[in-house]
Design a binder for these strands. Sequence first.
DNA 1: TCATAACATGAAGACTTATTCAATAAATAT
DNA 2: ATATTTATTGAATAAGTCTTCATGTTATGA
Lengths: 199, 199
Amino acid sequence: MISGVKIPTTRNGKATFNIIVETAIELFYINGYHSTTIGNITSEAGIGAGTFYLYFANKKALYTYILMEFQHDIRKRIATKVNQVEGRFEKEKEGLKTFIKYALENPHSYNIIWESLYIDRELFINYYDTFAKRYEVGLKESVEKEEMYDVDTELVSYILMGVSNFIGLKVLLKLGDNNSNVDQIVDNVMNIIRTGIFK
Amino acid sequence: MISGVKIPTTRNGKATFNIIVETAIELFYINGYHSTTIGNITSEAGIGAGTFYLYFANKKALYTYILMEFQHDIRKRIATKVNQVEGRFEKEKEGLKTFIKYALENPHSYNIIWESLYIDRELFINYYDTFAKRYEVGLKESVEKEEMYDVDTELVSYILMGVSNFIGLKVLLKLGDNNSNVDQIVDNVMNIIRTGIFK
DNA sequence: TCATAACATGAAGACTTATTCAATAAATAT
DNA sequence: ATATTTATTGAATAAGTCTTCATGTTATGA
């Protein structure tokens, strides 16, 4: 499937594969990708050093596999939630809320996605480029339905991704004050986006 | 001054110090912090391996020095430009434009600042926390002058930093289309922020 | 010009890490 | 029950990197 990754066939093999992935997610989060060695992963996972290479060609293949998993997961979750509400404003609100809550429940994913810029720029570009393109589809529909002004949907998707990511950052890293009530933060942000800030 | 950094006193020493810094900025940008070795830096700079340690205790001390320089530089430039125009809207527009242009002229700085999250989380937090706090000062003044609604200035500062950073990202990495005309991009973004996107 | 402080060198040693591979075990199909 | 595929091990090797230090050079002020 993904190059450099060998999916095991047996029950045992799958268990070993999974423990490698879970351990790596944790260690990448705590110490970062570059400071995590294959030795760290195997010893923490309680397996032999050589076992790693049964399933992954190297550390980057493992990282790429994990990134793809999170990517799939987060997109699916946002899409599901957004489909449950009507109207562009409500959809954006739900999307932002889902993103922040996902990041809070799963801080590993947030870190790993951003870190891709410093592991393989292609991965990072691919991630945000495709995210933006999918975002645009929904925005264009809303423009057609006249729920939104006739804005540059590409720019708007980057603006909204920027807002989501930095509010996520603030909440995750507890930057500044008032980071506890996610629903209220999202309400405030959406009100600011709706009303604007300038008189 | 900064711990782990020895500033040279003579003309020759300063030249060597500078070539280390310039070479490192370039290599950190091209290959990233973690993939850049002291050996890479010294050989690329054309100096002996031991010379590095005359001025820097280790790679992180050098990185921190570079980060601080960029931080100082970019803030000063934005402050100068923003002071030349009147009204909050014009100030924000000028700030965004200056930020993007700085990033374009100096893509090294952008990379190095973001990478700090994966080198030393403290550095990253400190960077955005103090940036946000300074941002808030201006925003609060504008609220008092009634140029802006009575918004949560902390949230607004993170929203605007998110927008700046992701538009910067788009332009720098050439994500999507239309990344050539910075003035026009900034005009579009500011119009979106002013008018809002929702009908 | 000479003493002194600053600057510069790069080989050497200590350390860390990735990766292979021959040997072994476990699971599964026939 | 046996053959065969799959999974596992960890010592050994190879490669890379940091950092020190004994030695040498350069600049400069008295």
